[in-house]
Amino acid sequence: MSVLVASIGFGLISTSILAIAAVGFTLQFGVTNVFNLAYGSVMTGAAYAAYVANQFGVDIWVSMVLGGLFGAALSLLINRGLYTPFARHGLGLAGIIQVTLALGLILENGLQAIFGPSYHSYQMSQGPSFHFGSMVFTAVQVGIMGIALASMIGVHALLAHTKLGKAMRATAADAPLARSCGIRTEFVTDIAWLLSGLLCGIAGVILVMDLQSFTSTTGSNFLVPVLAAAVLGGIGQPYGAMLGALIIGMVSEVAAAVTLPQYKEVIAFVILLVVLLFRPRGILAEVASLKEVVA
C-alpha cells in the first residue's frame, strides 16, 4: 500500500512536468496547426541555456526563468525564420512535419556537437525533504509542483479572462474568420509561439532539475510522453492537455509500482492507443478537422 501511495507522489511530479510541456505544445498547435516535432529539442536547448547561466553562478530558479525566456525566443525565431517561410512557400501539412523533424534532429545534434555527448548536472541542492504520509518530496519537487499549478492557473486566466486569450481561441477555431473580424492573427501567432516556447523552456529546465542530469537527447526522449498527453486530451485543447498529462503521468508511475518498472511508459502509451481507437480525436476534442498551417 505504501508503495502505491509513494508512486502517486512520483505521479504528481511527472504530471507537473508533463502538464507544462503538453499545454505549451497544444496551445501552439491549436493556434497554428504546426505539429512541432522539434519541441523536445527546444526543451533540451532551454535546459542547456539554464545550464550555462547556472555555471556562471546564477541561482537555479533564476536560471529556470532564463531557460524559459530562451525557449520563448528560440520558438519565435524558429517560426519566423523557418516554419512560416516554408508554409508560405507552399509546403503542406505533411511537409511541415518533416521540416520540424529535421529541425529537431539539427538542434539535438548541434547541441551534442557543442556540449559533447556526456551528461551534465546543475549546481543546486534538492533542499529539505517533506513527508506526506508515505509520499516524500524534496523542496525542489514541491517547487516544481507549485510552478506547474501556477502555470496552469495562468494559462486558464489568460484564455478565459483576457482579450488576448479570446483572440487566441478565435484564431484556433477559425483563422481566416478571425482575421476578417479584425483580429491580428499574425500577432496572435507570435504570442502563441512565445507562450508555448516559455512553457517549453520551463518544462525543459524543471525536467532536468527533477532528473538531476541530462544530455542532448533528454528533451527529445521526453517528447513522446508530451505528445501522448496532448493527443490523449484532444490536441489543441489546453484543458485536455492538462487532463492527458494527469492520466499519462499517474498511470505510468502507478503502473511502474504495480507491474514492471521498465514498462511504465509502454503501459501509458497503450492506453493512449486504445483511447484513440474509440475517440480518434482525443477525450475532449469536439471539432478537430484537418486545417492548413496558419502562418
Binding site: H89, Q98, V99, A102, I106, A113
Partner: peptide, 18 residues
C-alpha cells in the same frame, strides 16, 4: 563527426524541401 553528420542530413532535407 556523427553529430555533425546528423546536422548535415537535417540541413540537406531542409534544403531540398525548400
Amino acid at each position: 563527426i556523427d553529430a555533425l553528420q546528423w546536422v548535415a542530413v537535417g540541413l540537406l532535407a531542409l534544403l531540398f524541401l525548400w
